[in-house]
Design a protein around this nucleic acid. Structure first.
Length: 558
RNA sequence: AGACCCAUAGUGUAAUGGUAGCACUCCGGAUUUUGAUUCCGUCAGUCUAGGUUCAAAUCCUAGUGGGUCUACCA
């Protein structure tokens, strides 16, 4: 990781770590973890946690564990475990053999619970969820103690073992920590440590009848793994006293929880529940729909891991809530793509152009850089022919002022080609342009122009003879609203962008596109950055638009 | 309104008691065989009120505004 912070600088977590190292805490050892629950796919928000944990540990010579927080069998699936691992690797991080599961610790956690029971710090409660809720009180009113709170240690021990033995139904009883029912912090009002769940677990099957809650699993797992700095998002701030209470009462390794603000980006949603809803209700085409903010979706869309990493590193880490402009993400994306993308010419919405004075079977070979920013990317040769296609938007009969493209009688340069002058055009009965006839200037060949003609506009084109058909998928933001979840009176689905996907099935690309590799990134000149879709085949090429080029022209038109 | 957390240009983030800086966005200009890229420039900020101090974005107090918490989710 590039450390562009000054000595003594860095974000607040970096500073905490540095001061811990300075004071010799844990012998100067740094160990972090990324702890996803395998109940869905990772999204860009998770990448902030991933990058933070992995980069910070690496910066100080420490390690990062991958730990699946799988304490709720009802939501978790093995396919999500696999998906999450793939996404983390794609981002470029490696946890070596340190792949752990909270479920691996069920036996230890069980012993921890017994230790607390023996200390008189935990009890089995037969209250119903409704009763417990009622007795918990409110933030301003203290709760009441459960009638089961004073059971003897022996009874609690026996009851807890019977819970695990399957002698009780789901919901019949729970194990609670005995803390303080009048604490101003609701999480300290005798939180539930264990509940009975009959759903089989994706790893432990039906071995366990009882499952620890987040609060009785997360910190303990950190401690078991000797995690020094347990980084989590702000909504767990109120859990920290409980996190520390368990560690203290259990007398186990003192991991430290530190909270930071989670990532939010405008024009999208970042809640797993909402993303699941989009998938289930088929507003999108699965978790890897290129419009989704999931890493799988962004990968399919053509985002690079480098762009995502740069984006996250530019954000910084703090405790303020924020909503990042999508434009920053797009900026880092274009920045990376601009360096690596191979340039190609593709006409998305073609109109035919015939060059009247170009000899019938003549062809002219035009050399073209694959990437002007990277000489090592090499060159390709494009055949210039009598008939070709240009973009429909690049010809206008009656254009606005400062339009630099083709118009009746007007001139334009074809990129890597010749200068053209429009002679006439044909329309159908509805006024739609069918064909444009131009003459070309033989001395104006790209690279050796002696024609002396100056033109303002340069447009892309594809030979009609050699062009290959491709399908283009143009993506736009999934939502029209900056903060779809930010309206108390309206459902976020109301803000779905009806134009978030535009299918273009008539596109024509220069033939070199046939050599495309799935992982290659392209810039289709003047049309944006593209990547081959996962569904693309040699017989049916499909390209996704990752992001547009910046466009000051259409902006000006408004 | 009980506890806890947060407050710096439009957005995000630095400045750790000593010149408020950077990036993105916006706007303008130069270059350009991509209306792209590249380069240059403009606009724009410490929530409020007190206090401490030679000196406060920074420390203290109060206020204001926002957030989190009342699952047997994580």
């Amino acid at each position: 990781m590039e450390d562009n912070t000054n000595e003594g600088g860095g974000h607040f977590i970096d500073q905490i770590i540095r001061s811990d190292i300075a004071s010799g805490k844990h012998g100067g050892r740094i160990h972090t973890r990324f702890p996803p629950e395998p109940n869905g796919f990772l999204h860009i928000g998770h990448s902030k946690a991933i990058i933070l944990n992995f980069e910070l540990a690496a910066k100080y010579g420490g390690m990062t564990n991958l730990r699946f927080d799988d304490t709720n069998p009802a939501a978790e699936e093995t396919r999500f475990v696999e998906g999450i691992k793939e996404d983390i690797r794609w981002l470029g991080y490696d946890w070596d053999d340190r792949e752990y599961y909270a479920s691996d610790y069920f036996p230890t956690l069980f012993e921890y619970a017994i230790k607390l029971i023996k200390k008189g710090k935990a009890y089995v409660d037969h209250s119903s969820p409704e009763e417990m809720s009622k007795m918990r009180g409110t933030p301003t009113k203290p709760g009441q103690e459960s009638p089961y709170r004073q059971r003897s240690i022996e009874d609690n021990l026996e009851l807890f073992h019977r819970m695990q033995a399957g002698e009780f139904e789901e919901g019949e009883c729970v194990l609670r920590a005995k803390i303080d029912m009048s604490s101003p912090n609701m999480h300290m009002r005798d939180p539930v440590m264990y509940r009975i769940l009959n759903t089989p677990h994706h790893r432990t099957g039906t071995k366990w009848k009882i499952y620890p809650t987040y609060d009785f699993a997360h910190g303990q797992s950190d401690s078991i793994e000797k995690i020094t700095h347990s980084l989590c998002t702000l909504e767990f701030e109120n859990h920290r006293p409980l996190y520390e209470w368990f560690i203290r009462e259990l007398e186990i390794f003192p991991s430290r929880q530190i909270e930071f603000a989670r990532l939010n980006i405008n024009y999208t949603v970042m809640s797993k529940r909402k993303l699941l809803q989009l998938v289930k209700e088929k507003h999108v085409d699965g978790w890897d729909d290129p419009r989704m903010p999931t890493l799988a979706g962004m990968r399919r869309r053509g985002y690079t891991p480098q762009a995502i990493r740069n984006f996250i590193l530019k954000l910084g880490i703090a405790k303020r809530k924020h909503i990042i402009d999508l434009s920053l993400l797009e900026h880092t994306l274009r920045e990376d793509l601009n360096n690596i993308a191979l340039r190609r010419m593709v006409v998305i919405d073609p109109i035919r152009v015939v060059i009247s004075n170009f000899p019938e079977h003549h062809e002219e070979a035009m050399p073209a850089d694959n990437n002007p920013r990277d000489p090592e990317a090499g060159k390709r040769t494009i055949q210039f022919t009598k008939e070709l296609y240009i973009e429909r938007a690049d010809f206008m009969v009656d254009p606005p002022s400062k339009y630099h493209r083709l118009r009746p009688g007007g001139f334009v340069r074809l990129k890597h080609g010749f200068i053209l002058q429009c002679e006439h055009y044909q329309q159908d009965s509805e006024g739609k342009i069918i064909e444009v006839t131009c003459k070309y200037f033989p001395e104006s060949k790209s690279g050796s122009d002696t024609s002396g003609i100056k033109v303002k506009g340069v447009i892309h084109w594809v030979s009609a003879k050699y062009g290959v058909p491709i399908e283009i998928r143009l993506y736009d933001r999934l939502f029209n609203d900056e903060n779809p979840l930010g309206h108390a009176d309206r459902d976020f689905l109301e803000f779905l962008n009806p134009d978030s996907l535009k299918l273009c099935t008539n596109a024509i690309g220069e033939p070199s596109i046939l050599e495309a590799n799935k992982q290659d990134r392209y810039q289709f000149l003047r049309n944006g950055y593209f990547v081959q879709d996962t569904e693309s085949t040699p017989g049916h090429l499909i390209f996704n638009r990752t992001v547009t080029l910046r466009d000051s022209w259409s902006k000006k038109q408004k």
